[in-house]
Amino acid sequence: MYYIHAISSITHQNTFRIDNIIKELSPIKENSNLISPDYKEFIPGAALRRLSPVLRIGLTAAIDCKNKIGKKFDAISVGTALGCLRDTEKFLKTFHTSTSDFISPTSFIQSTHNTIAGQISLGLKNHAYNMTHTQNNLSFEMALIDAIMCINEGKINVLVGSADEKTPFLELLQPKIISKKYPLSTGGSFFSISKTKNKIGIIDVKTIFNSKNTELEIKDFLKKHKYETKDIDVILHSDSNIEIPKSCHFINFLKYSGLYYSASSFALHFAHDYLISKNKNSALIVNDICIDKVGLILIKSNEA
């Protein structure tokens, strides 16, 4: 088991520094906005001026997690599906429209996918292992697999999370190239995990490519940990078309997070608070935001 010791989420819902986000959540509406904390409380002005929303989210959530555990991270593992999209588009515009010999470098240096994790290392003055995974809807699951390996290898406190941002251009593309029909959103959730016991633990994570039968994959995954689908109290899914037993609570997390490819980190925050506030035992996250690529995360309460 890999226990969750701190969580920090900045999303379109009121999730930042809220003990139980469940009571704050309501279905996301079209044109909702990111609910941002006062970033200046966390990030010095000299650094803040260059940071796009996805970078502000990542760095602030990381600082918040660090403040909560009061210890340094021994590894940092971040997932992002589309990276720093705003700076990427900004730089595309800069060089495509420039007629000058000199072009502004700021959006270029902030555009690489690992700027989120890199800014966290800079902001926390952290010299540890620092990784960035980008695998479409499974980006957060990849970061989590890495974080779990870090703990297996003896790292004590590991920061793991994901963040993605929407842009007007992405909204333009959505009807054609994004299969799920939920309002696009910007968000990020970060977690401090370790071997030290706490209320909620992650049992296992699995990624499946070319999934032909998601129900069967779920069954196999649960069986490995001596569970059956009916034993699971809540399944958080991404508008998934799967048959599940009636005993199991079935929640579509995209209704609350809005749509960003790495939103399964939001689902993990959701599941964590659900188990604690409802005194339940187990939760499964089923992420098939991209068709036939499935991420499964199984978590369990240590108390219920």
Partner: peptide
């Protein structure tokens, strides 16, 4: 002001665009 090497490059962009001075 706490500016760094990237800001120096932004200065070069500014000098060219506003004052037509090139520093290569």
């Amino acid at each position: 002001l706490g500016l760094d090497s990237i800001d120096a490059l932004e200065f070069i962009v500014l000098l060219e665009s506003k004052y037509n001075i090139k520093i290569s």
